Simulated assay, not measured.
Amino acid sequence: MRREWIKDLGLTLVVLLAQSGPFLFAQRIDPEPWTFLDYLPVLWACMPVFFRRYQPALCVFISALGVGAYGVISHGPAQPIWYGALVCMYTVAYQSPRIQRLATLAITGLGMLIVIGSINTAIRELATWSAAYALGTLGRTRKEAAITAQAQATQLATERERTRIARDLHDILGHAFSLMVVQAESGAAIARQDPARAEKTFDAISAAGREAMTQLRETVGTLRETPSLSNIDSLVLKLKHAGLVANLVVRGEPRQLPDEVQLAAYRVVQEALTNVVKHARAKKVEVIMDWRPESLEMSIVDDGVGNTESEGGHGLLGIRERVAAVGGRVDVGPCASGAGFKVKTVFA
């Protein structure tokens, strides 16, 4: 607020100085000096600039009255341009409501045609004031466009954030619950045959639930600490606890990737392994991280019956969206041998 006050004061002084120019450089025909009465309409026409933000239309009319008074009570030098009135007219076009803008424009134009005796002078003044109004309209249009663009950007960012959180919730809970269901279903049968092994199975169920709760808290807390490629081995280890033969194969020399790429790669592996547990009825799964000179190729391969999830399901759809969001490529489908299913992603 204070900064705006200083700006308004500075602009008012600049306008007043420019309007006072003819008094400083012009000379009267008679030897008498300019009087305060000659200068009073100039102050009258310039002072509304300071208050124009609050009542722009009223300031235009007050300034216009000062312009008219200059021709009636003053014997001052000719004023080619009335800067204060033009600044107020600009402000009307820039910030006033539509009805006020139109009313001000109509009353000002009509007043000029009535008061100004010379038609040429009236046309010149109308053109000058219309130019100020046009500049104000241009500024208002740009401001409105910027506000609209900012609102759209905010809405898009909000939608992306909602989608991201929805994916994370799906990946975290879907993976954990799938493992828990599989282990719980096999736990009862194992308990009758091998109580010691059954205890490990139920410990794995408990661990999966606790980890799901931990990751869920991180997600609700805006995911300040996100998983990375270094956490993929823990996903593979969970499948081993679930009774599958699961292996992690790393080829090439690992290197640092952007956080968003590491998170996307982790979620892809998590979702692919979840699909293996839920759909594939596989006995073996292999996660391959192939570090190339300019890319990272990741493959999740199982020996099951294939993924029966539809292409439009949340799992595969989420994988495609995550990979595309970081500029990667994804290919899903049956293995070349005809047995099993493969999810392959490439991150540049």
Rank of each mutant, 00 (worst) to 15 (best):
S186I: 12
T141F: 14
V236W: 00
L40E: 04
I319P: 08
L102H: 14
M213K: 15
D8M: 12
G174D: 08
Q100I: 13
R160C: 06
T35D: 08
V42F: 07
M47P: 01
L223Q: 07
I99C: 12
T141P: 10
A132T: 09
C59S: 07
V343P: 02
V72P: 06
G10N: 00
L317S: 10
E32W: 10
A280M: 11
A153V: 00
R3T: 12
Y133H: 12
H241A: 15
E4H: 05
A131C: 14
I123K: 00
F347E: 07
G338C: 10
L296R: 01
K200R: 15
A264K: 07
Q262A: 13
K238Y: 05
E260A: 02
P22V: 10
A188R: 15
E294K: 13
Y90R: 10
F23V: 06
A272L: 05
L317E: 11
A324K: 10
T201M: 13
Q150E: 15
A191M: 13
P97E: 09
A122H: 11
E294D: 15
E218I: 12
L248Q: 00
V268M: 13
K7G: 10
K240S: 15
F25R: 01
T121F: 10
L156Q: 07
A188M: 13
N275Y: 07
F347N: 05
T154F: 05
L11Y: 02
I190K: 08
I73L: 06
A188V: 15
G328D: 01
A325F: 02
A336S: 14
Q215E: 11
L223V: 02
G313Y: 04
L273V: 04
I165V: 13
T308M: 08
K278P: 01
C46H: 01
A134M: 09
R281S: 12
G21T: 04
R255Q: 04
G333R: 04
R3F: 11
T201Q: 14
S118P: 00
D168T: 04
E159I: 05
A26L: 06
P48K: 06
P31L: 12
A134C: 02
A57M: 05
S74F: 01
L229P: 00
R160Q: 14
V287N: 00
V15H: 01
S230T: 09
G306W: 05
A325M: 04
A78R: 08
G252S: 00
R192V: 13
A280H: 15
A64Q: 13
R281A: 14
W34C: 08
R329K: 14
H175Q: 08
P195V: 00
L102C: 14
W5S: 11
L135Q: 04
Q55S: 09
L37W: 13
D302K: 09
L296H: 00
R320S: 09
R3Q: 09
P22Q: 09
D233Y: 01
L110R: 07
G306Q: 08
V276H: 06
G109N: 03
A265V: 06
G174L: 09
S295E: 00
T91K: 14
L86K: 07
R3D: 11
N120I: 09
